[in-house]
Design a protein around this nucleic acid. Structure first.
Lengths: 228, 228
DNA sequence: GCCCGAGAGGAAACGTCGTTCTCGCTCGAT
DNA sequence: ATCGAGCGAGAACGACGTTTCCTCTCGGGC
């Protein structure tokens, strides 16, 4: 062990650099190929409107080999999980910037909430520069949750954390009044995020919920003083 | 056509009775066999905690033939849909009786809401005499919604209708104040029913939402006066 | 210049499942 | 006794995810 460390330390710098360069090359090559798979899968989801594409289609579209696919992904689930995590990463960045663009805590919470709603609701065509529909991925997330709750939880954690912070800030300055910040943030997130399940269930367009209606409901639920 | 009708009308009564009896026998025999399939599927779901049983298992358990299965069901989806509808029928009856046992509209709404929450939340072991876990079916309902939104909607309609009535009554007597009853009922139903998705997502037990917390959140969201 | 081994592509193969098909038995009516 | 409908049993099929195997290639060491 110590010998190995010593050897490593005594390696001429050029060797280290060379190895590193080789590794970097390999890494970027690998990342490129992974990205090709992801892009192909996103395209297929857009076209079909569902996550029910076949591996073969991904292979054909990305012009890579089945063997290569299984070299980079443990299976289809891993691919879908990667798509999900990628989508949530985008959403998180977007939500952060939206919330930060507001001054008052209650306004930030409102902006954050409405944008979160838009990310989850398929019928919305919001302001964000959405390159493709994430709807099928959000749908599939439910199934992912069943088998990979830890990873889904981890992917959702940044959004959950932001929600807690925003509720806490609004609670601190008196805009809202909640007994338990974390609990309130949880129910808030849940109400907003899972609102899209009501999609096919609303009997008519009139009763379909809007982002605004959801926000108001939450606002009073959080104990905001009601205007008369 | 007229001839046929005349013939039918002139048929001796005994023939009609005989046919009817035969049909009744066939019907009850068929219903029995369908029930065997349903029971077997329920058992499998209970044991495995998922709807991912195979048709073969249902066949084996119900001691019937694959051929028979496809004679009664168009496929696995139809079976799952039947289980879902059966479950909702039970839930609807239960919810109705719970709501009717309360006098004041707001109390009825509260009782209804909390019981509905319990029906959807897997972790709850409520007062109802639940013979088996409906959790996997509720999970799968999301996928069913994607392909059979009409049938899911229809199965959910009675519950939705009750929710509207209860919100309307509570709104009428001033317990709550909502601008749009149908809309309020919709968000209410959604918030309560889909709360179980937060299952794997809550980071710890403390932030996990209870039926009571959900009810309170909704109550104020619906515009109930807040006690100070 | 030659060889060798890692890596990648292609395709065949496998296992699981849902679904369909076919064969043969049984039973009740004529 | 016979015929036909109904039904059980199981083979077979097709779709897919996944694994495996064979082959080719390419870069580095002898």
């Amino acid at each position: 062990m110590t010998d190995l460390e010593a050897t490593a330390r005594n390696d001429p710098p050029w060797r280290e650099r060379a190895v590193s360069r080789s590794l970097n090359a390999a890494r970027s090559r690998a990342e490129l190929r992974v990205q090709r798979f992801l892009d192909a899968a996103f395209e297929l989801i857009d076209e079909k409107g569902t996550t029910e594409f076949t591996i073969q289609e991904v292979i054909d579209r990305s012009q890579q080999s089945l063997r290569g696919f299984y070299q980079y992904f443990d299976g289809k689930d891993e691919l879908l999980l990667a798509l999900f995590e990628e989508t949530l990463r985008e959403a998180t960045d977007d939500l952060r910037s939206v919330a930060e663009s507001e001054e008052a805590p209650i306004d930030a919470l409102r902006a954050f909430t409405i944008r979160l709603y838009e990310w989850c609701d398929p019928s919305e065509r919001p302001r964000r520069r959405s390159t493709h529909s994430r709807r099928p991925i959000m749908d599939f997330a439910v199934q992912l949750t069943a088998d990979y709750s830890e990873r889904v939880k981890a992917a959702l954690a940044p959004i959950a954390r932001m929600m807690v912070q925003l509720v806490d800030a609004a609670n601190a300055d008196g805009s809202i009044t909640v007994p338990d910040v974390r609990r309130a943030a949880a129910i808030m997130q849940q109400t907003v995020m899972y609102s899209w399940f009501g999609k096919g269930l609303a009997e008519n367009v009139r009763t379909r919920l809007s982002a605004e209606a959801t926000w108001e409901f939450c606002l009073y639920g959080l104990g905001a003083p009601r205007e008369r």
